[in-house]
Every structure is written in structure tokens, then in C-alpha cells.
Amino acid sequence: MAFIKWFYRVVFLSVTLSAILAGYLYHTITAPVEITSKEEFEVKAGDTAYSLGNELSEKGLIANPYLTRVVAKLHSEWVPKVGKYAIKPEMNLLDIMALFDSGQSIFYSITLLEGKTTRDFLLAMQARGNITMTLLDASNEEIVKKVGLDVSHPEGQFFANTYRYHEGDTDVSILKHAHELMTQTLNDLWEKKTENLPYKSPYEALIMASIIEKETGVPYERPLISQVFISRLEKGMRLQTDPTVIYGLGDLFKGNLTRKGLQDSSPYNTYRIYGLPPTPIANVGREAIEAALNPEQTKALYFVAKGDGTHAFSNTLQEHNQAVRKYQFKRREDYRSTPVIAK
């Protein structure tokens, strides 16, 4: 009889202690972490429930490093994915471990601006410091191959936009996304273009869009400049646009377009060649493509910078020469090529 009483007491004590331990564990893994603001936590390659417990404990996010092992036992199907994660004050350890399993790591963003070259895009990515760079020293041919482009030159193939990425993503993956968006946008707008334009393909329209993008940052001017260039093409006139010459000069351009530069034999020198240059000269956004495909009717064949970021348009060479004398020979003190953006 005494043995039976002792046995029941041991069982009762064991059950009680187990219940207390279970209650403690439940409380500790479901209690919000003791932080007042969002914190970043990195799951590295090779991390396990044990190592994550140690790191979370060292950061003061959990009281005991063994708690992550408890969660791992409860959810053996959860596998932590490499990445940086945002841990928020309202989260508990179950939430944190589920987050690591989800792979929903922190997104970063980068804005690739209109009018910038592919080289500029790569330098912007490098400046972020958390993108894996593989193309900085690559030739145009190598970029075409690695990104999987169906053209011979990468310029103009990447849509200017804001892109989200995870830390460690490659420049190739971001450019692939930008190219997919460019292809989709260009094809969609090509279907809605004005009739009887002088382009043989969407690629030629993209070349024109890049020139328009470099010529003006004023939205209402883009369709006008588009029509000026289209009219010149239709009349067999040279485009005579400085940005193409500057692009062709590359590193030889030092900030001022000289007479020698205008005599350069580059295929981008539209003061010497007829028609469009062989490739786009920059990457563009939707507005420049829309302008190239939907010009605004005007009789103007010329335009010149006024020094305030806008342009004076002229129908005849005589009018244009007068505008050049007015705006270029006597430049205003605050002369600028881009408009002031109101804040």
C-alpha cells in the first residue's frame, strides 16, 4: 500500500513539474521579444536551431538559447533560409522562427534613373554596397551574354524604374528584371503607336526614345522633340543631336562638345551620319517611349536650349539661327540644361 501511495505521489509530482515546464516554455516562446523598435537579424549559411539560439540570446532577443531547439522540435519541418530579416517588437520566438523558414527576408530598393547608361546603372548598384557585382569589368558582349539579351549591345535594354532586391542579389538578376520590364513596356506601347512612323522595328523606336530622353527633362517637350526628329528623318535631314555625339565620344568627352568632337567619325555622330545611330544611347522610362511612338504635331525642324532647362522650337533655319544667337551666344548667368524641379 505504501508503495502505491509513493508511486502516485511521484506520478503527480512528475505531471505537475511537466505542466509547469510546459507552461514556462509556452510562455517564453509566445511572449513578445523585448525590443522597442525593428531590428535586423541575419541568418547565415549553415545556421542551425542551436546556433540561431545562441545568436538570438546574445542579442537579448530571447532569454535562453535552448528555446530555439524547443521550437525546432515542435516544427521540425521549418528550415531557416539565408538572408536578413526584420524582427519587430510584437513578434515572439515562434513568429521569428517561422519568418526564418519563410525566406521573407528584408527587401531593399534601388532606383535606376532615366537617361543613364548601363554603365551608370552598374555603378549605382555598386554604390549600394549590398548587391553582388559581376558585370563591372564586363564588356558589352559579356553583358549581353550573361543577362541573356537578344541584341548585340546592352545599351537601352533596361527599363528605368525602382527595383526591389534582397541583400546579396546579383547585378545580373536586377538587370534581367529591368530588361523584362523594358521588353513588356516597349511591346505594349508599340501596339498603340501612331500610324506611319518611320521606324522599322520597336528597337528603332527605342533608339529614338533614348535620344529624346537625353534631349529634355521637360515632360511636355518630349512629344515635340519626337516630331522634330521624325520630320527630319522623313525629309532626309541629319538629326544633328549633341547627345548622340557625346555618347559616341565616350571617355573622350570632357564636358564641352568641341568642333573636333563634332567631326568625330563615330557611327553615333548624327552631324555626319543620316538616320538613327546604331543603338540607343541611354536607358529610358515609359514617357520617352510614349513620346517616340506618339509625337505631337508641329512644323518645327529645329530646337535650341534656352538655358532654363526648356527649348525654343523653330520652323525654319533662319528662325533657328536667331534663337541660337539669342539663347546661346549671350547665355544667361544661371544657364542650365535641366529644369528646376519645384519642391
Rank of each mutant, 00 (worst) to 15 (best):
M208H: 10
E215H: 07
P202E: 04
K200F: 02
E221P: 11
L186W: 10
P198D: 04
I225K: 15
R232L: 02
E195W: 13
D188N: 15
L197Y: 03
Y199H: 02
P198L: 01
R232F: 03
L189K: 13
K214M: 04
E191H: 10
E204H: 01
Y203V: 04
M208E: 06
T194C: 01
L181C: 01
M182E: 11
Y220D: 14
T183D: 07
E191W: 11
S226D: 09
L206N: 13
T216F: 12
I207S: 12
L181D: 05
T216H: 08
K192A: 06
L189G: 11
L233R: 11
K193F: 02
I230T: 08
T194A: 03
T194Y: 01
R222I: 01
V228N: 13
A205Y: 06
Y220N: 12
T185W: 08
T183S: 09
I211P: 05
P219K: 12
L206E: 08
E195Y: 08
R232Q: 10
R232V: 02
F229C: 07
V218T: 15
M182V: 00
K200H: 09
I212S: 03
E195S: 11
S226Y: 14
E191C: 05
E213D: 08
L186T: 14
G217W: 08
L206W: 11
T194I: 00
P202R: 01
L206V: 09
Q227S: 05
N187D: 10
L233W: 01
L181S: 07
S226L: 05
T194M: 11
K235N: 04
I225P: 15
T183R: 13
G217L: 06
I230N: 07
I230M: 07
P198T: 00
P198M: 01
F229L: 15
M208G: 03
E204M: 00
T216Q: 02
L197C: 01
K192E: 15
Y203F: 13
K200E: 07
I225F: 14
E204F: 00
I230A: 06
E204D: 02
S226V: 03
E215I: 00
E215L: 03
R222Q: 05
T194S: 06
T194Q: 05
N187S: 15
I207Y: 12
I225Y: 14
T216G: 04
S231Y: 00
E191G: 12
Q227N: 09
E204C: 03
I207T: 14
I207H: 11
W190H: 12
K192M: 10
T183L: 13
E204N: 02
E213L: 06
N187T: 13
T216A: 07
E213G: 06
M208C: 09
F229D: 10
M182P: 10
T183F: 06
S201D: 13
Q184A: 11
L186M: 15
K214H: 06
V218G: 06
L206T: 12
E234T: 05
N196D: 15
I207M: 13
E195D: 10
I225G: 09
E234V: 02
I212L: 09
I211L: 12
E234C: 02
W190K: 11
L181I: 00
Y203P: 04
W190A: 04
E221M: 11
P198S: 02
T185A: 15
F229G: 07
R232P: 09
S226K: 15
P223G: 04
D188Y: 12
G217C: 06
L233D: 13
A209Q: 11
V218P: 05
Q184M: 08
T183E: 15
Y220L: 07
P202C: 05
I225A: 10
K235T: 00
